[in-house]
């Protein structure tokens, strides 16, 4: 498949005209990383805007004690590092492959040139950035106002709503990193949701048996 066709399949670029896609394809560079491979580190100069073709990526920060907080879990069609690619600053967080991934890198200089000539692409990126800001504001609200059980309920519901997160499964450690807590706390919160009859465990499955109960617990 030609690069243009592969880019056109990404929701991010779906509305672009063939000529715009061709211009884009001339600048996009394919990259591949193995599972657990580091795509970039916080503080490094930003290479550009990244697009996920296949696989899953986590955007995360690690504190001096080695504790991890996952900011975003991303899948095919998602993009990341828009902020650093646009403002020219260093990467604001680490990006690591959760599975083998195939990515496209649009270098910052090429992105800036495209934004100056392509209003549709500019609007699309502004929309993505606005969504990111909303998500971060939501995370701050969750951390400041809600218990781990409420945050876990919201996390589980979000898994159902986001097909881009389709992948090899979620672990207690990953959930803990996403909720800024400890795996033991996640275990207790999962038991609380199980006792509330919102979820059931069936070997490797966490089955949301009562979405209504889970939504009530999630305060949604």
């Amino acid at each position: 498949m030609q690069i243009v066709e592969r880019l056109a399949e990404l929701p991010y670029f779906a509305a672009l005209a063939p000529a715009q896609l061709t211009a884009l394809a001339q600048h996009c560079q394919p990259r591949a990383f193995p599972a657990e491979g580091s795509i970039f580190l916080e503080g490094e100069p930003a290479a550009g805007l990244w697009l996920i073709e296949t696989g899953r990526v986590k955007i995360h920060k690690v504190n001096p004690q080695g504790e991890e907080h996952i900011l975003h879990l991303l899948g095919p069609g998602n993009t990341f590092n828009e902020i650093a690619a646009l403002d020219g600053g260093p990467n604001p967080a680490d990006a690591t492959a959760l599975t083998p991934v195939q990515l496209w890198l649009l270098p910052s200089a090429a992105l800036h040139r495209l934004l100056q000539t392509d209003a549709l692409l500019s609007y699309r990126i502004i929309g993505i950035l606005a969504g990111r800001v909303r998500m971060l504001v939501g995370q701050i609200e969750d951390l400041a106002l809600y218990s781990v059980t409420i945050r876990l309920a919201r996390f589980l519901l979000k898994q159902l709503d986001d097909p881009a997160l389709s992948g090899p499964g979620v672990t207690r450690a990953a959930i803990a990193a996403h909720l800024a807590t400890k795996p033991e706390t996640v275990s207790r919160a999962l038991r609380t949701l199980e006792q509330a009859e919102a979820i059931q465990f069936d070997r490797h499955r966490i089955i949301i048996v009562r979405q209504d109960i889970l939504r009530t617990i999630a305060a949604l």
Partner: peptide, 12 residues
Amino acid sequence: EIPYLVCLPTSH
């Protein structure tokens, strides 16, 4: 680590 699948009853 133990990986889990989050799903609905009708979409195992």
